[in-house]
Simulated assay, not measured.
Amino acid sequence: MASAKNQSAQATARRAKLEEARRKERARERRVRIITISASVAVVASLVAGGGYLMAQANEQEKAEEQAKTSPVTGERSWDKLTQEHVATPVNYPMTPPVGGDHNQVWMNCNADVYTKEIQKENAVHSLEHGAVWVTYNDKASDADVKALTKRVESTPYSFMSPVADQKDPLMLSAWGKQVTVKSASDERVAQFFTKYVQGAQTPEPGAACTGGLGA
């Protein structure tokens, strides 16, 4: 009789231990599910937040570019009613570097082209007519500024760069009918001038080629 009771008690203890093990396993599985779901929610939330951040950044960039295009460039000079005849003779331009007027029938290549020697102004003006921005400098410009502006031009289609020894300021930017002197390559007007005038509204012949012309 005592043996039967002992066996019953042992069986009850084993069932209790088994049930406790099962309870612990179920609890562990619940924790795993909670952690997995929480991690998934966190990932989705971060992706949503990240996507929202990127969209917000894109919107801010678009607004900044639109503002740059519509706001005047501080200190810029403008010329209207510029002639556009093709000529084969030198032109006496009223400004240096020239920003428009009669010009050679062949344009300077202006597809992110950097020239280390002076170029013919009559060819450069034709490039401005096609919507390019022309970066120029003289021997008073610092090597650091020339290097930084070179990098910008080399990454910007419809722009070109060359030295102009007789310009009055060390660093100047020109587009068709527009020109500004900047203090340095980091001057905020550099970015604005590029944004506003590379293929900008001032362009007489938007979309015209910047390749296939005259090279260095």
Results as ranks from 00 to 15, higher is better:
residue 6 N to I: 14
residue 6 N to M: 03
residue 7 Q to R: 13
residue 9 A to V: 15
residue 10 Q to Y: 02
residue 14 R to K: 11
residue 15 R to A: 12
residue 16 A to G: 13
residue 20 E to H: 04
residue 20 E to V: 05
residue 21 A to S: 13
residue 21 A to L: 14
residue 24 K to Q: 14
residue 25 E to I: 12
residue 26 R to V: 04
residue 26 R to A: 06
residue 27 A to S: 06
residue 28 R to Y: 04
residue 28 R to G: 11
residue 35 I to M: 02
residue 38 S to F: 09
residue 39 A to V: 15
residue 42 A to D: 06
residue 47 L to G: 15
residue 47 L to P: 00
residue 48 V to R: 00
residue 52 G to S: 06
residue 62 E to I: 06
residue 70 T to A: 15
residue 72 P to F: 13
residue 76 E to T: 10
residue 80 D to L: 10
residue 82 L to M: 08
residue 83 T to V: 07
residue 85 E to Y: 10
residue 89 T to D: 02
residue 95 M to C: 11
residue 96 T to S: 09
residue 98 P to S: 00
residue 102 D to F: 00
residue 102 D to P: 04
residue 103 H to P: 02
residue 103 H to N: 09
residue 103 H to E: 08
residue 104 N to Y: 04
residue 106 V to Q: 14
residue 108 M to N: 11
residue 109 N to T: 01
residue 111 N to C: 04
residue 118 E to S: 13
residue 120 Q to V: 10
residue 123 N to F: 00
residue 124 A to I: 03
residue 127 S to V: 12
residue 127 S to K: 12
residue 133 V to K: 13
residue 134 W to I: 05
residue 144 A to T: 07
residue 146 V to W: 00
residue 147 K to M: 06
residue 148 A to T: 01
residue 149 L to Q: 02
residue 151 K to Y: 03
residue 152 R to S: 03
residue 154 E to S: 15
residue 155 S to P: 12
residue 161 M to Q: 07
residue 161 M to I: 07
residue 163 P to W: 01
residue 163 P to Y: 03
residue 166 D to I: 03
residue 167 Q to N: 01
residue 168 K to I: 10
residue 168 K to L: 05
residue 169 D to R: 00
residue 171 L to R: 11
residue 173 L to P: 01
residue 175 A to P: 07
residue 183 K to M: 05
residue 184 S to R: 07
residue 185 A to L: 06
residue 196 K to F: 01
residue 197 Y to W: 05
residue 202 Q to M: 04
residue 208 A to N: 01
residue 208 A to Y: 01
residue 210 C to I: 09
residue 212 G to T: 09
residue 213 G to C: 07
residue 216 A to Y: 14
